[in-house]
Write a protein that binds this DNA or RNA. Structure first.
Length: 804
DNA sequence: AGCACGCCGACT
DNA sequence: GTCGGCGTGCTC
């Protein structure tokens, strides 16, 4: 008897242990690793979905095995690679394998559980049962069933007057349409046509249609009816006469309405062709090498990606390209589709679940050979991958911030190893981790220092907002920025105004001298905790009162810092009444497609000024933009995160790259209260290497990534005392395995210490080498699982992107 | 979630 | 001695 090891999807209980089920004789060949199955679970009649991980000859389980009820998939939805990957991912991210599997697959493969209530035999006429069912044979039990009703149902159930039926629903369905096709060739149709009566006008028209459009068959019947005015009875008659037949076709729900012109590979610059040939060597030799392309904005990295993808395809391999969600705008998608046509599948958050499933199927079937997508596209079911590319490698959005907390770069590294193919990381401003790995020789560095066509770098000016001349001005624009905005408007060019809004209002800065209140122990800025009315450090928990005079210069101009986009928009409208301003921030892009619409509008020069937050800094290319103004460069600098300088540098460098990309010279104005800060000065010079050296020195001094690994563990509970108690227990557990070389910070409350009425505490572990830590954390995770029922939640974040 | 099991108090 | 109430733990 065969046995299947199944990872089950029990919504209320999570474990990484597989459960074993008997494979009924009849399902012997269908139950294979990677298929989804329906199985019974628990003592009741509950049915759930599970993933078959393994098929074995016998079981070690002492009890009696339940049989598999049903196989959901005809062919496996998980390849061997994906099954292996899920084990690794669960281990690496301290999450449950079931949630890894669900993350790897399109959402529609997540089971939908339904419960139906029906009268038990003999109780069909019971008055209470009647009242519940209200003349229906059965009713569905949904989430919004009221508590009283639940009680009533539970009571009837106890009395055995009703039965509850469990149904596992498969939501994964392809869109099928009725279409027509024919077995006859053109000559045969002509032959048949000549036999028609001359007054059979509709049939004649249909035969002509079939002859003309023979190559395009099958064609959807609805399309024929609508576009060519051929009615259904006409088709039916032709079917009767064996001219055509009706079939079901699977239709791709594709939102990509754009069909960009086919483009060909342009002539490469020396640097580009150097890069391409280095990477292609690795593709040819099936080396799982990682390359880091450090290329200034405008150096033509995208073309390098496209040509390596070409190479992989030429060798009958596939390619995976990840870009940040924000870059998945038509501009980037067009370039890839333009080169590779319908071999491309695009995966982004804007897809409906049906569309996403269709793209997934196209990849799985091998129809799509190139995948472009955001973070989760790293799990695309490509076979035989020839190259993996991650553009804007430093972007924080590659890390998922809920379970499983994976970093797409890590998953990509794993897959590259599996497929023995190169991984290409590209950025103008690489993350410190990656750049440091390149330094150590773990990654191979490829430098691209020249802009295409020798476009000069934009002219960057830093405006010192501490200067009275600038700060005395009403509003947020310095005279220099105002003058330049006027000039752009007069010349009918375009400007981008960036408002750096992160960390809004939560830290305190002196408007006189730029002083920011920092933690005496941790060298990060203190955050204002509203519920405490005090300044607090996230790292060590240090707190102090809110200052009213600047500790540095004794000025009273110290206070919360931050400006909203609406406010700036108002100022722009007042000062430049004739300018057309487009605002792009979380508020104006909430609607589906709004983001692309704003970009298109600005690209068509239907506005003069694009005002926005970080989202306007990346991947956009507007030839008429000659001015970029950064209203407040400091806000990212002052958030209490050790990556603050890195983020600021990256943002400023990126946004500066938006100016003057075509033949017009670009101008960038950065307003700041910290004109001497290295992150700002280096960004102004677009000097990544100098920044890197300085930042590495500071990270080394304060013991952060990439010199140390960090793991963040957070605990929450409804009751603050309980949460704190649990976190101290946790700390003790960790202390028992940690050596003296590691640092254990906390427990301290998180930035928003209370979310959804739960109190959050966090512990940070900084370490270089702790052989027992991983095992201990896995233990803690499974030990605390039983506690979740009591309201505890615990989350372990391996290498957090931000600590707040 | 739902069911069995077991511990304890109330009652025959 | 036995019935049943609910807290606890397990589910292949």
């Amino acid at each position: 008897m065969s046995v299947a090891a199944v990872i089950v999807d029990v919504p209320t209980m999570q474990t990484n242990r597989p459960f074993e089920y008997e494979i009924p004789e009849a399902l012997n060949d269908v139950v294979v690793p990677g298929v989804r199955v329906e199985v019974g679970f628990g003592r009741g009649k509950r049915k759930i979905q599970g993933f078959v991980m393994e098929v074995k000859d016998s079981s070690d389980f002492s009890g009696k095995l339940k049989p598999i009820i049903r196989v959901i998939d005809v062919k496996p939805v998980l390849s061997k690679e994906m099954i292996d990957l899920s084990y690794w991912l669960a281990d690496r991210t301290y999450s449950f394998q079931i949630s890894c599997l669900q993350t790897m697959l399109p959402n529609v493969m997540r089971a939908k559980y339904k419960q139906f209530i029906e009268a038990a035999p003999g109780f069909e006429d019971d008055s209470q049962v009647q009242a519940l069912l209200q003349n229906h044979l059965f009713v569905e039990l949904t989430n919004d069933t009221t508590d009283e009703k639940i009680k009533e149902i539970a009571q009837l159930k106890r009395q055995n007057k009703i039965n509850i039926e469990y149904v596992v629903e498969n939501q994964a369905n392809s869109l099928t349409r009725q279409a027509i096709t024919t077995d006859l060739n053109v000559n045969e149709i002509s032959e048949k046509k000549s036999q028609l009566r001359s007054n059979a006008k509709a049939q004649l028209k249909l035969y002509d249609f079939l002859i003309v459009h023979h190559d395009e068959l099958p064609i959807e019947s609805s399309e024929i009816e609508k576009k060519f005015n051929i009615t259904r009875p006409t088709l039916k008659t032709a079917e009767k006469n064996n001219i055509l037949k009706f079939i079901e076709i699977t239709k791709r729900r594709t939102p990509v309405g754009i069909h960009p012109e086919q483009t060909n590979a342009p002539v490469l610059t020396d640097e580009q062709s150097q890069a391409v040939s280095t990477i292609n060597d690795s593709i040819d030799n099936h080396q799982d090498k990682t390359f880091l392309i450090e290329g200034v904005t405008g150096s033509g990295k995208t073309e390098v990606y496209l040509q390596t993808i070409s190479r992989a395809i030429a060798q009958d391999e596939t390619a995976l390209m990840l870009v940040p969600e924000i870059s998945l705008t038509p501009q980037m998608v067009n370039r890839v589709i333009g080169r590779f046509g319908n071999q491309v599948a695009v995966l982004h958050s804007g897809l409906s679940s049906g569309e996403r499933y269709d793209e997934w199927t196209r990849i799985e079937d091998g129809v799509a050979k190139v995948v472009v997508g955001a973070r989760s596209a790293v799990f695309a079911p490509l076979k035989n991958i020839g190259v993996i590319i991650i553009d804007e490698e430093h972007e924080g959005s590659y890390k998922q911030d809920d379970n499983p907390r994976y970093h797409a770069r890590d998953v990509a590294t794993w897959r590259a190893k599996f497929h023995k193919c190169p991984l290409v990381l590209g950025s103008a401003t690489p993350s410190l981790e990656s750049r440091a790995r390149a330094e150590k020789g773990v990654y191979q560095m490829i430098n691209m220092t020249k802009r295409i066509n020798d476009h000069p770098l934009p002219h960057v000016q830093i405006v010192d907002m501490r200067n009275s001349e600038n700060s005395a001005v009403k509003g947020d624009f310095s005279p220099l920025l105002q003058d330049n905005l006027w000039r752009v408007l007069k010349r009918k060019e375009q400007a981008i105004v960036l408002l750096n809004r992160r960390g809004y209002s939560s830290f305190i800065m002196c408007r006189e001298c730029g002083f920011v209140l920092k933690c005496p122990n941790c060298d990060v800025s203190l955050t204002y905790h509203k519920n405490l009315g005090r300044m607090k450090c996230h790292y060590c928990g240090h707190e102090e009162p809110v200052p009213h005079v600047c500790p540095n210069c004794k000025s009273k101009k110290i206070g919360f810092y931050g400006t909203g986009t609406e406010n700036i928009e108002k100022q722009l409208n007042e000062q430049f009444p004739d300018a057309r301003v487009l605002r792009m921030d979380v508020d104006t892009t909430r609607k589906k497609g709004a983001h692309a619409a704003i970009i298109e509008k600005f690209g068509n020069h239907e506005a003069d000024i694009l005002l926005g937050t970080q989202m306007i800094a990346k991947g956009l290319d507007f030839p008429d933009v000659t001015l970029v103004g950064v209203v407040n460069a400091d806000t990212t600098l002052s958030i209490s995160d050790y990556r603050a300088s890195e983020r600021t540098f990256q943002l400023l460098t990126q946004v500066s790259g938006r100016a003057g990309r075509a033949d017009k010279e670009g101008h960038v104005i950065i307003q700041t209260y910290n004109p001497d800060h290295y992150a700002i000065k280096d960004a102004a010079k677009q000097d990544y290497e100098t920044f890197f050296k300085q930042e590495m020195y500071l990270r080394h001094q304060s013991g952060y990534t990439p010199y140390y690994f960090t793991t963040l563990i957070s605990v929450s509970h409804q009751d603050e005392g309980q949460a704190l108690k649990q976190s101290y227990w946790l700390k003790k557990q960790l202390q028992s395995v940690l050596s003296d070389n590691s640092v254990l910070l906390g427990p301290s409350p998180t930035m928003i210490s209370r979310k959804q009425n739960k109190y959050f505490y966090q512990i940070i572990v900084k370490y270089k080498q702790e052989p027992n830590l991983h095992q201990k954390l896995l233990e803690i995770l499974s030990d605390t699982q039983a506690e979740t029922k009591k309201g505890f939640t615990i989350a372990i974040d391996n290498e957090p992107q931000h600590i707040d």
